[in-house]
């Protein structure tokens, strides 16, 4: 599943980093009908998490109320150099993952 992430490559310890993620997904509501009047089955990304230094620092649990191609902007406190790991999963069991490293200087 295609996603784009934006994480600063470098940050000062104690600095609040802006994290952005955008995932290509139709976020099918289950209410949309095809040409024959049959509903496309609901299939949305229900969970997105972000781990930093092994700890979960942000988590989103969502339903069909999040727009197609979900976009999130959130914040993480720069603590130590390391990896930010993003993971998400949809109702059909398909998921994705992305990672980025940040260098924390004092």
């Amino acid at each position: 599943m295609l996603a784009r992430i934006q994480v600063p490559s470098q940050a000062r310890r104690g600095e609040v980093m802006t994290i952005r993620i955008s995932i290509q997904h139709a976020m099918e509501t289950g209410y949309r009908l095809d040409d024959f009047g049959r509903a496309y089955p609901k299939n949305v990304i229900h969970t997105l998490s972000c781990h930093y230094g092994g700890k979960e620092v942000f988590r989103a649990e969502m339903g069909s109320g999040i727009a197609a191609n979900p976009y999130f902007e959130f914040y993480v406190l720069a603590d130590q150099s390391g990896e930010l790991r993003f993971e998400w999963q949809d109702d059909s069991g398909v998921g994705g993952a992305e990672r980025a490293t940040v260098q924390v200087v004092t």
């Binding site: 620092v57 942000f58 989103a60 976009y71 902007e73 993480v76």
Partner: peptide
């Protein structure tokens, strides 16, 4: 619509989405 989980490691209790 959605729930967002934060912690002191978030640094800021703020989130933007569509």
């Amino acid at each position: 619509v959605a729930s967002f989980m934060f912690s002191p490691a978030s640094g800021r209790a703020e989130v933007m989405t569509r």
